[in-house]
Design a protein around this nucleic acid. Sequence first.
RNA 1: CGGAGCGUAGCUCAGCUUGGUAGAGCACCAGCUUUGGGAGCUGGCUGUCGCAGGUUCAAAUCCUGUCGCUCCGACCA
Length: 572
Amino acid sequence: MRWTQTLIPTLREAPADAEILSHKLLLRAGLIRKLAGGVYTFLPVGVRALRQVEQIVREEMNRAGAVEVLMPAIQPPEIWQQSGRYETARDVLFKVKDSAAREWVLSPTAEEVITLIAAADINSYRQLPKNFYQISVKFRDEIRPRFGLMRAREFIMKDAYSFDTTDEAAQIAYQKMYDAYTRIFARCGLKTFPVEADTGVIGGKFSHEFMVPAETGENEVVYCEACGYAANLEKATSGIPKTAAREIGASPEKFPTPGVLTIEALSKEPYKVAANRQIKTLVFIVQDKPAIALVRGDDQLNETKFAAAVGTTIFRAATADEILAALGARPGSLGAVAATLKSKDIPVYADERLRGANDMTTGANDDGFHLRNVSIERDITVTQWRDLRTVIVGEPCVKCSNTLKIRRAIEVGHVFKLGTKYSEKMGALYLDEAGTRHPLVMGCYGIGVTRTLQAVIEQCNDKDGIIWPLSVAPYQVCITPLNVAPDNAGMQLAEKLYAELTAAGVEVILDDRDERPGVKFKDADLVGFPIRVSIGEKSLAKGEVEIKPRGGAMLAAKIADALERVLALVRE
RNA sequence: CGGAGCGUAGCUCAGCUUGGUAGAGCACCAGCUUUGGGAGCUGGCUGUCGCAGGUUCAAAUCCUGUCGCUCCGACCA
């Protein structure tokens, strides 16, 4: 490709609405342009890098035994109602109406569609296992798109779906995808690490996310350097001890606490109730009904774990009025002691760390009063005990007791063991050897392709711009003749090298712009081509050309050796 | 959805407080000079000052509304 033929609109300054480095570089290097919030056009060089990532994904999926399909981006809402996700995923569903006012859903993912295919066309254990994947545009009505391609409303995702006869067989499919993902990200030049992840409302057996360490990441990962334990903060647990039991008082005792509205206030004079002897009572509205979550006073509720407990993400904190109506008191004096509750119908979800705790203090559901001497198992009717607290840095590892750390990371892939949730709802059944019907056992596996591309940039750059790994570079080699006059010896050599490298299968861009050298060097560095070959009067006079790996040291090569030297670098 | 900020040339921004001819740098076009790390000089092009309404003799500037964008939070398969 000749530079003058394509369009690489580099910018000296980044547009003001780009916040993180990789987003700025995407814009400055002329890879993308924003059309609207979370909606981007890929310009020629951006498309080329994107296709490189896609190709790696495709090769590794094929190698892992998956087969490529292509499903529609517009889907009828009925199938979403059938799976139940028309409601549970309503916040992210893009909906459009056609000219007959019929509603359609823009696909954010494709479990429903592929499961219907399986329902119709997979009938026998003899056809299993199967794994289908596609690389396509996805739509999510993100509440807050941000950071360029990191969280976009329209993006490219590779999604795969495995179908197996049994849990054990599905486990093999899961492991194949896990291994394929490890290879994919390594080939993209990305340092990733897998972490245990939340299965949330889907309620699958387990899942892993592939994370790229980055301060700009939206996820927090808890990890242990000693034993390798790593989990998303939403999922992570620690080996922190339960609340110590003390002598049991006879019964709860009500005492006045005027003006005390916080855990902190109750821990000070004159009350001096340590936060770890308090029960924090939180009220949520879960599908229009109140529910109570209890954690220890010095702990923070983990809302993802709470969502898993209540079985839906459709909940919110209750308003002061709703709390007053449900518990008869205002925030600051709330509690879940059975004797103080107006209604026995409000479910109470309690954190495991409170199990067995006594001599605790909590609100009395009477403004300005608290209860002391509360023994949680005696005085509170707990609907469900559950790990609900958020891990804090420095706590002991759940597996090996060493100190846990927390770092931020970008999620680029997610492998998920689904089980039979979708196959049961969509009627995807198969017959076994005995002629008995069973639901197919599924797994689903996603890679954010556009996000991966940006993660590469976030990880591979310096002050001058992007430093593409060879594997995903839009062009592997940039030839930079400093004089582009057709009769110039340097330009003629550039043309010759360009033709030879191209014939050898190398992706080359020839910077044939009649620009000053400084401009061409700056642009080549900014866009980040892995290898630059410069041809100017100085080196030509010595019978040489300059080969400059991006981010590495310049090396001189005799003209006769140039082709082989470049090929060696490309193929290393 | 709650909080904050910003919308002026393709990009970065000034001008707004105190109403009175719409600006600078970069980019772009022409010419001359220059030619190994974002050149210099001269000349030129580029605007619905987000949009709508109001106040006023007069609005980029003041007021109201609205739309968009960004950040924090909430949310997030």
